[in-house]
Design a protein around this nucleic acid. Structure first.
Lengths: 231, 231
DNA sequence: CGCGGCGTTGATCTCTGTCAATACTTGTGG
DNA sequence: CCACAAGTATTGACAGAGATCAACGCCGCG
């Protein structure tokens, strides 16, 4: 693993509070593996033996429903870990995971993790911090889903993509629009319409490139009751 | 703490995998305290020093939004623990908590918990199992919110209230309908209408008493696309 | 008795899902 | 280089679900 990858690992919520030694022990000298776009990392219901660190790329976590449709629970990005929780839940993944872009991932053994937790209380605390962080993310997502309209959800999604919190900003949609739509709990058609409704607020879409005139204004739009701004 | 309370504690996801000794150390000889309906247990943004075990009653976890409305994230019941996660998240509660019925709660110090985790790896694993359980609940709730219509959400809520998984069942709504509505992500008016739509499926409402003719039928209704049953 | 909180009902409107038709993109093979 | 097919995105028309607004009933309480 090179210096760059190491930096990303050390910046994750899970590893940032963990000691250098404990981290190295867990990684066990393994490097990141490349997964093509669309690779199934694990499937709902199968034994949970590993968790993952995303060095680069995007991974969707989803549940398949009886009638074949899938519900995207979350899409993780570079610098995040996922599936740690599954290792403590009776040994089976409660969701499925798939790369939605070509990605580089570290795979870490659940066995090793358990051993580390037993050996080093700090690892345990780091795990708890990371799990709590995930909880918080989900809580926020629930709130978001309940409160906001389609265009507002899109706005808050875009704001989350921006590296800056104000001013002008150009970002790229990290994955397909149909996935963005699912992620935001709407149909692709509704996403298209949401995109148009955002245009008057200084958001220009061109393919998968998005130019946001004023990030703060967009953030405001996603927070306040929709018609308090000029339309 | 009497025998009965102890049994409830030992049945929680958190304590069931924890040793008897570790549990006793955490409880520290303290008994359950009674909280009137409407008691604020902690407020979003304040320092997170304790977590709670519900011996009896119901507690809502919610977030206040800028414009004054509140979004209910979850309502916990007897035999559940909550706010553990907050103890590992930079020291502040990210949500508020309030009893929605008169309740008996155990309050456990975050300090003591951290100490226990350092002393005993099994406590750490129990905590992780519990956090993972909460994660799973939230994931399920997200899926539920995205996929189901109002009546279906109500149906799945009622099924969750039933002690049995089939046959006839009579339950009481544990808290006000307006809270049920918020919990299910809809307006009180829509809940009223959902109640009516469930009547043809063998669900009778009388005030806060609900008689369900056939729990399994109701469960099926909440799972399948709405119009596959007679209506 | 009258007030206030909660719940229901009705009318209306808005948003989103659905279905169908049409672009646009990409990759394939001639 | 072009033709074609498959996947993906957009647009329009329509219907249904739910929000909103307003009115009213119910009930507990001073």
């Amino acid at each position: 693993m090179d210096q760059h990858d190491w930096q990303i690992v050390r910046a994750t919520p899970l590893f940032q509070t963990m000691s250098k030694e404990a981290t190295e022990r867990l990684l066990d000298g393994q490097g990141a593996r490349v997964f093509e776009k669309g690779s199934l990392l694990f499937q709902q219901g199968t034994p949970a033996d590993y968790f993952f660190v995303i060095i680069d790329g995007w991974v969707k976590i989803y549940r398949a429903t009886p009638d074949g449709t899938e519900t995207v629970v979350h899409v993780f990005r570079r610098g995040e870990t996922f599936a740690e929780a599954a290792l403590f839940l009776g040994g089976r993944y409660p969701v499925s995971a798939e790369t939605v872009s070509t990605s580089r991932l570290l795979r870490i053994s659940g066995q090793a993790l358990r051993r580390s937790i037993r050996d080093d209380p700090d690892v345990a605390l780091a795990m708890l911090a990371s799990a709590s962080h995930h909880l918080k993310l989900l809580v926020e997502q629930i709130e978001l889903m309940k409160r906001l309209t389609g265009p507002q959800k899109l706005a808050s999604f875009l704001v989350g993509l921006c590296p800056l919190s104000d001013g002008r900003c150009k970002v790229m949609l990290p994955y397909e629009k149909s996935l963005v739509a699912n992620r935001l709990g709407m149909e692709p058609e509704s996403l298209s319409r949401a995109i148009n409704k955002l245009r008057p607020f200084g958001v220009q879409f061109d393919k998968d490139e998005v130019v946001i005139e004023d990030v703060q204004r967009l953030a405001k739009f996603s927070d306040v009751s929709q018609d308090e701004e000029e339309g």
